[in-house]
Design a protein around this nucleic acid. Sequence first.
DNA 1: CATGGGAGGTTGTACGTATAACGCCGTCCG
DNA 2: CGGACGGCGTTATACGTACAACCTCCCATG
Lengths: 337, 337
Amino acid sequence: MAPGSTRPTSRDVARAAGVSQAAVSLVLGGKWRGRVSETTAERVREAARDLGYRPNLAARNLRLGRTRTILLVVPALTTEFFAGVYTGAARIAAEHGFGVVLYPSPEGVGPARDPFHSAQAALDGVIASSMAAGALTAIRGDQLPLVMLDSDPEGSLGAATVNLDIADGARQVAEHLLALGHRHFLHLAAAIPSWTFEIRARSLAAHLAQVPGTSLNSTHAPISIEDALTAAEAALAAPGARPTAIVCDDDLLAAGAYKAARRLGLRIPDDLSITGIDDLALATAIDPELTTVRLDAELFGERGMQALLAVLEGRTPAEGDIPVELVVRGSTAPPGA
Amino acid sequence: MAPGSTRPTSRDVARAAGVSQAAVSLVLGGKWRGRVSETTAERVREAARDLGYRPNLAARNLRLGRTRTILLVVPALTTEFFAGVYTGAARIAAEHGFGVVLYPSPEGVGPARDPFHSAQAALDGVIASSMAAGALTAIRGDQLPLVMLDSDPEGSLGAATVNLDIADGARQVAEHLLALGHRHFLHLAAAIPSWTFEIRARSLAAHLAQVPGTSLNSTHAPISIEDALTAAEAALAAPGARPTAIVCDDDLLAAGAYKAARRLGLRIPDDLSITGIDDLALATAIDPELTTVRLDAELFGERGMQALLAVLEGRTPAEGDIPVELVVRGSTAPPGA
DNA sequence: CATGGGAGGTTGTACGTATAACGCCGTCCG
DNA sequence: CGGACGGCGTTATACGTACAACCTCCCATG
């Protein structure tokens, strides 16, 4: 590369190899069988290597009318959960020659910035978590192929949806705690308006109500340890029957509940059982280790990407929720043990 | 939009507004002052709105020869640290009309996949963490403007570097523990070949050596709680003088050290002091809360992006490491307290 | 010997945009 | 009254690629 010169184009390669630009495109595009001789092809490849040629993706995208780039819209990346979703989605995408661009919705329901303008890349499709509330209004009305993660199948504008079987997770938590003998519950819920969290709450309430004599209170907090601490401490200190178990919408909230329990001198699990959802690394770092619902984030991302690829190819995405699994650890025990 | 039709182009807008395509480009590009009348401009804007026109970014990128897209190459997103870096970088980028695409290097030093092929987007520049070892070889030799995060200023191919003052962090840890009276140390180091971790180790050793009679052993583990648990347990159970303090390269490693201490019946901080680096949410979730070095991940990302923007504009990036701050919490105390 | 056809290319064009260069028309000044 | 100039546009072109269509040998075949 001479200084000041720009990147080499396919025409530069052609000149160096003594062929036409079209021949370069054919060879490097792998479509030269029966069109270009092996010796010429090798000469082209060598010239490309020497010049350090990289195809101009903007030009290729323009020509082909597609970019093989998918936008993944997620809420903030404050836990590794959506990192896992990204990893799974990116893996499947790579297998099909697609790239994935991440758009973490600015904190919460911020000023609805435009993900399409912000992620400058030209896009072939979008996968969006229903929790990325701020960005969703901007996405609606765009005619890009869309797959929603964890979204109300009825209210997703006809877009395909991929869901974790989160209602079943709530069922497993409820049955586990009921079997241990708990009757008085606190639901420490995420203060995010999202279909997912509504379903969790409804499923939890429904399954707890199957046993007579149970009580269920709720309190809400933003998904952060400090906010959860504040909310849990207030709820535990409130007058009336103290719950013997706290069901949290998220492991981070559970960590806040741990801190509240410590402040109030309550031992876990003897005085108070706590459950989470996600199974983050955090879950086994705290003492006692957290009983939680394991969500397979990578599988979630994989299924989301598979669904989008199906949409892009005109196929119908596979049906079926992704199963989740209760992992029983040390934070749950019979009440008053 | 009639069904089956493709996205509207600027020419469609022009037709609808009864003007030329060039006029549309001028109006929508904001360069119409003195070239197009206000009434015509308004007509164009209305037509664009009615048709739901979005400029084709591939075409724009091709025409302008730049994409306003930056690639951020990071190691795996298993903690929120690099999520913070991304957030900071993306904020500064957005202020300058740039987008950021994330490339998490496949686990560790995986098969050196090509970040440029994987992230399909056409790029204007690259910011790369020196910890993303696998991807770095692919980046080298590419003539894209490059900024390295936490990299040896000497060995970064002349690329600009932005560093956290990690050596000073190690100094603060060393002086804190020495002041408490500790003399026998274990360094639980990250098993990642990276300049950053070498510097931490060197700085730690140098500052501890300033006090006569100190001892320092090292053990290495991949950055995960379970691996750290294994390594720390082995090191603590080894014959010889047991360390009274463990200095960890990372909060995740520190969490592993907590678990090792619990298994061995050692109380923190009475029997064993532990320190980390990063100040993740995890640090205040575990009990006792972790004394650690707070790294400002978002500022790190901001400075990285500012440096890259400077490079792109031909300016010289600002000098100076980013200061870090020891946060003293409950995991450190005088030995044998 | 004419004809077909395959191997090995080349020429030409379009993707959608931004912008340089060029009108055209009315007005105003010398 | 000529021409310069400003306001309001238009026409033409280039960015780099992928591929359809074409072209030219040369050999085999009837």
